[in-house]
């Protein structure tokens, strides 16, 4: 089997943060392989390295990869900048989306959308056409038109920020979406809406990695594979039953 059937392959990934005395190893040899069309869930205790893994895949400059590789559609992407990876179709839904006062949400979305189109060799979208696309996507996420006028995430509630992440995902239509605790802080109705957004992306040619602490998201978005990450390593991989197991018993039985 060639690696090309995998959309994402993480091989023996070790990563550190800081320098000299302050250096900390966070990832200690992660192996992960996600096939096209699959949904994987990653669970794990606080501080185990889930967000670190997702940020390294997205190209965050703070972390240093000391070993291993990350392949996206068979290509090693570790040398690529974050924006280049994004334009290739990698999307990270942040656990803590930042607020960016002064940058208009809708304008930003249009810029990002056009960058993606440019990367695909398409023309920039006509602003009015884009507005239509945006309005339609916002409707499916039950988002008020006012969000277009506001600055990125500025003053958004926790749940609103997460919904805005899903909106961005829907607009950019990435091949690989890594969603870092997008379900945290959502009420039941919002959870259903966000899950709907994720399910709409799901399909052939796409892959989704859900980082979550809770089974309840997985009730709406059924994962094909579940991993438990602990101490910078994947300690267990299983089917969707593993998530139920974790929900019932916690992580102790896996970590020991």
């Amino acid at each position: 089997m060639t690696t090309a059937t995998y959309m994402l392959e993480v091989k023996g990934l070790e990563a550190t943060i800081g320098e000299d005395e302050g250096i900390t190893q966070i990832l200690k040899g992660i192996n992960l392989a996600v096939k096209t069309g699959e949904v994987h869930a990653i669970m794990g205790p606080n501080g185990s390295g889930k967000s670190t893994l997702s940020k390294i895949i997205a190209g965050h400059p703070d972390y240093r990869v000391s070993k291993g590789e990350v392949l996206f559609n068979g290509e090693n992407i570790l040398e690529l900048e974050a924006d280049e990876r994004a334009r290739k179709g990698i999307f990270l839904g942040f656990q803590y989306p930042v607020e960016i006062p002064g940058v208009n949400n809708a304008e930003f979305l249009r810029m990002a959308y056009n960058q993606r189109r440019k990367a695909e060799g398409k023309e920039e979208a006509d602003p009015l056409d884009f507005e239509e696309i945006l309005d339609a996507k916002m409707k499916t996420l039950d988002m008020d038109g006012r969000y277009k006028e506001r600055s990125i995430n500025e003053g958004f509630s926790g749940g609103e920020k997460k919904r805005n992440e899903i909106l961005q995902m829907a607009i950019l239509d990435p091949a690989l979406a890594i969603l870092d605790e997008t379900d945290s802080g959502l009420d039941v109705d919002a959870l259903k809406i966000v899950a709907g957004g994720i399910n709409r992306l799901r399909g052939p040619g796409k892959a989704i990695v859900l980082i979550t602490h809770y089974q309840r998201l997985l009730d709406y978005v059924q994962p094909d594979v579940v991993h438990v990450l602990s101490g910078g390593k994947i300690v267990k991989t299983g089917g969707k039953d593993l998530a139920l197991e974790v929900e019932k018993q916690g992580y102790d039985w896996l970590v020991k």
């Binding site: 190209g59 974050a82 924006d83 942040f94 930042v98 960016i100 930003f108 960058q115 990367a119």
Partner: peptide
């Protein structure tokens, strides 16, 4: 830098 990474992670150079 966090804001910059956020924008870049959406494909902005």
């Amino acid at each position: 830098p966090a804001q910059q990474f956020y924008l870049e992670s959406r494909g902005l150079p």
